[in-house]
């Protein structure tokens, strides 16, 4: 009872601190997904369309990396970005940018692996037709990515789901700094540790609601797009 009430109050009151946290969470996760997509989609398409020695090993590795523990990714980014690490001079540790990097590393394999599958399936369908139309190799990749775009949305959503839900990596590289690197998930971790379980649950409900909303929007966009493009 108590829990439901305070969660509801939190949402209804539109507390500025809460809004800032939500905004930062979305900004970090969406930027990470975008970054990961820029790497993952072309990489997946490239692996789908090329044959080279060790290709199977690359695919297996990519699939395995989908399960990369966030803490491990976080620790690797932490060690790299620490002042004593190789990229320490960038001064990025404990910043939102560091969180974007860590999440992009977690999300890129998911997007790459799912993109590879999607593009490869479409490639089987399109191969002869594109050859018959004498389409150049680079244009083929673009065509496949474009025509698979509605299926690729699913890959991006899977990536976003992982980014939005994860706490292990960003709490290490972001430091959970109040008003600066505190996101929904790290705030939930903090409130839990402070024993404020109703607030933690409230934040959790807000997070779930946002994830559902984004999925619904993407779903709607996908349906509309499919009606248009078949």
């Amino acid at each position: 009872m108590n829990t439901d009430l305070s969660a509801l109050q939190l949402v209804l009151s539109a507390d500025p601190a809460l809004i800032a946290i939500v905004k930062l969470s979305l900004l970090v996760s969406l930027t990470a997904v975008l970054l990961a997509a820029l790497i993952g989609v072309p990489l997946g398409a490239l692996i789908a369309l090329t044959r080279f020695p060790g290709r199977e090993a690359v695919i297996v590795t990519l699939n395995a990396l989908m399960g990369l523990p966030p803490v491990v990714a976080g620790l690797a980014v932490f060690l790299a970005l620490s002042r004593s690490g190789p990229l320490g001079s960038w001064g990025l540790l404990f910043t939102p940018q560091a969180m974007v990097i860590a999440q992009a590393i977690l999300v890129a394999p998911i997007i790459a692996a799912l993109s590879r599958q999607t593009v490869e399936d479409l490639w089987v369908e399109y191969r002869d037709e594109l050859a018959a139309m004498n389409v150049a190799a680079a244009a083929r990749v673009m065509t496949l990515i474009w025509d698979a775009r509605f299926s690729l949305v699913t890959a991006l959503l899977a990536g976003f789901g992982r980014a939005a839900a994860e706490v292990g990596a960003i709490i290490i590289v972001g430091g959970n700094i109040d008003g600066f690197t505190r996101t929904m998930t790290t705030a939930i971790a903090l409130e839990t540790s402070k024993g404020d379980l109703p607030l933690a649950i409230g934040l959790g409900l807000v997070l779930i609601a946002i994830v559902i909303l984004i999925n619904a929007l993407a779903w709607g966009a996908r349906r509309a797009g499919e009606r248009y493009a078949g």
Binding site: E125, Y126, D128, E129, M133, N134, V135, A139, D147
Partner: peptide
């Protein structure tokens, strides 16, 4: 040019398919 036995329609409109072929050509 060839019309394959079971032609694959690209996931675009009818006009989009023709435009695509024009661009490829």
């Amino acid at each position: 040019a060839i019309v394959l036995q079971r032609p694959t329609m690209l996931r675009r409109s009818a006009a989009g398919n023709v435009r695509y072929a024009l661009r490829a050509a």
